[in-house]
Structures are given as structure tokens and as C-alpha cells.
């Protein structure tokens, strides 16, 4: 449980910030996906973007947890 909170929660917070910053700057209607203009509805694009960010951030958190020196790991992870 702790491990999952540590992986999913900070990544969620950072993903929310990244999502806001990214989509303020980039209009989803101007994105290209494999050379084709994105055809999803805006809300779909925003949502997929958010989960993309979350996934990337969660991967980073997971790796952090994994690489943490043994003595400092939370018990659930040892």
C-alpha cells in the first residue's frame, strides 16, 4: 500500500502540474499523432495527455523507489 501511494501519488501531483503547463502552451488541435492531425475530441486529448504524464511520472517514482539505498527503503518495499 505504502509503495503504491509513494509511486502513484507524487506522480499524480506532478502530472497535474505538467498537464496544466503543457496544455496552456500547446493547443491540442495543433498536435500531430504519427503524422496525422489529432482527431480526438479536446476532452479526450486532455485526458490522454494527463494519463501519459501520470504514467511517465509514476515510472520515475517507481525507479526512484527501486534505486533507493537499501537502508532507507520503506518497510513495505524491502
Amino acid at each position: 500500500m505504502l509503495k503504491w501511494i509513494l509511486v502513484l501519488w507524487p506522480s499524480f501531483l506532478v502530472a497535474a502540474v505538467a498537464e496544466a503547463v503543457f496544455f496552456v502552451v500547446v493547443d491540442p488541435q495543433q498536435l500531430y499523432l504519427f503524422g496525422e492531425p489529432v482527431r480526438y475530441s479536446p476532452i479526450a486529448t486532455y485526458s490522454i495527455g494527463f494519463f501519459g504524464f501520470w504514467l511517465a511520472c509514476a515510472a520515475s517514482s517507481l525507479l526512484t523507489l527501486f534505486l533507493q539505498p537499501v537502508g532507507t527503503r520503506p518497510p513495505a518495499h524491502r
Partner: peptide
């Protein structure tokens, strides 16, 4: 720093 926090509280 470096010490293990008593996080067992999470489960129990």
C-alpha cells in the same frame, strides 16, 4: 536522514 521511519502505521 537515513533512518527508517516507523511507517508500519500504514498497514496497522
Amino acid at each position: 536522514k537515513g533512518e527508517v521511519r516507523p511507517v508500519s502505521l500504514y498497514s496497522a
